[in-house]
């Protein structure tokens, strides 16, 4: 059983509102517990206030094989500060007390599997999480997760890559909910070298077969990138660029404001793109 179309949660509402306002979604990835629990919570709150439409809370993992050096380093810092999957769920629950922004839990599969897939589903549901993205869990292996989330009004966010062939994109899009995460290019998170022409072609092909909003991620680092890519889909996802800015801070207290400033910079780029498209 897939989860599409059976319910509407905060993610669906956010995309509906954005579409009505003719705006694109800004999805912000932040490593949970970086640099520590309390600062991380404050960062997430301020990022929401600064204009992020959807949050991806990244559960730190010891072996993040899909991530580049920046998220590897932030994950290591978070783990050293005592972060874990259970504390990441606590973080989401604490954030949900004060914001209504949709929350996606981003994780590798091992922490979720070890925790117990059913227990994970129940606890994130109680915490007020709206979506789950398990980066190394293709649909073929996701039976337990789909079953555990049945009836919970939580979307499974799927990824499509430049290497994903058309018939598989149809399968992925059909089984997904919330939005489809379109990977901009081959490689891990956080490395540059975006090719907007190639991404445009790919995004158009994916949008044709995907019944859900499509957001583009990997390698989007500044407002120019945001301006170039936002018009190609329904939103963009920014992770490493955000974490890179945070890693430059002199002390923890300064980090939340830096994160908010980066979000505003990206927002300006995206909204400028919208204006150009209209003029």
């Amino acid at each position: 059983m897939d989860t599409k179309g059976l319910f509407m949660n905060r993610i669906d509402a956010a995309f509906a509102n954005l579409a009505a306002a003719d705006r694109k979604a800004l999805v912000a990835y932040l490593t949970a517990g970086y640099p520590d629990f309390d600062t991380s919570l404050e960062i997430l709150k301020q990022v929401c206030g600064a204009g992020a439409d959807i949050l991806e809370i990244g559960v730190p993992f010891s072996d993040p094989t899909c991530d580049g050096p920046i998220i590897q380093a932030s994950s290591e810092t978070a783990l050293k500060s005592g972060m874990s999957l259970s504390k990441s769920i606590e973080l989401a629950a604490a954030l949900r007390q004060s914001v209504e922004t949709p929350i996606v839990m981003f994780s590798y599969y091992n922490p979720v599997f070890r925790y117990g897939v059913k227990r994970f589903a129940e606890e994130i549901s109680r915490a007020g999480v709206d979506g789950v993205l398990i980066v190394d869990l293709p649909p073929e292996e996701a039976g337990d997760l789909v079953e555990a989330l049945a009836g919970k009004e939580i979307h499974i966010i799927r990824l499509a890559a430049p290497t994903t062939r058309p018939e598989r994109i149809r399968m992925l899009a059909g089984g997904a909910g919330g939005f489809l995460y379109l990977i901009s290019r081959t490689g891990v998170t956080g490395t540059g070298g975006l090719d907007p022409a190639a991404i445009a072609l790919h995004a158009a092909a994916v949008k044709k077969v995907c019944p859900h909003p499509v957001c583009i991620g990997f390698g989007i680092s500044n407002s120019d990138d945001a301006r170039a890519l936002a018009p190609l889909a329904d939103g963009i996802i920014v992770g490493s660029a955000l974490m890179r800015v945070l890693s430059k801070a002199d002390d923890f207290a300064a980090i939340p404001a830096l994160a908010a400033a980066k979000i505003r910079e990206l927002r300006v780029g995206m909204d400028a793109a919208g204006m150009c498209a209209k003029s």
Binding site: D136, R158, A160, A161, L172, T186
Partner: peptide, 19 residues
């Protein structure tokens, strides 16, 4: 699908699935 009982399988990011 490459499973030895409940072990094995293919737990990788989407980019590698085609390869």
């Amino acid at each position: 699908s490459g499973h030895f009982g409940c072990y094995g399988g293919r737990f990788v990011g989407e980019t590698l699935m085609a390869a």
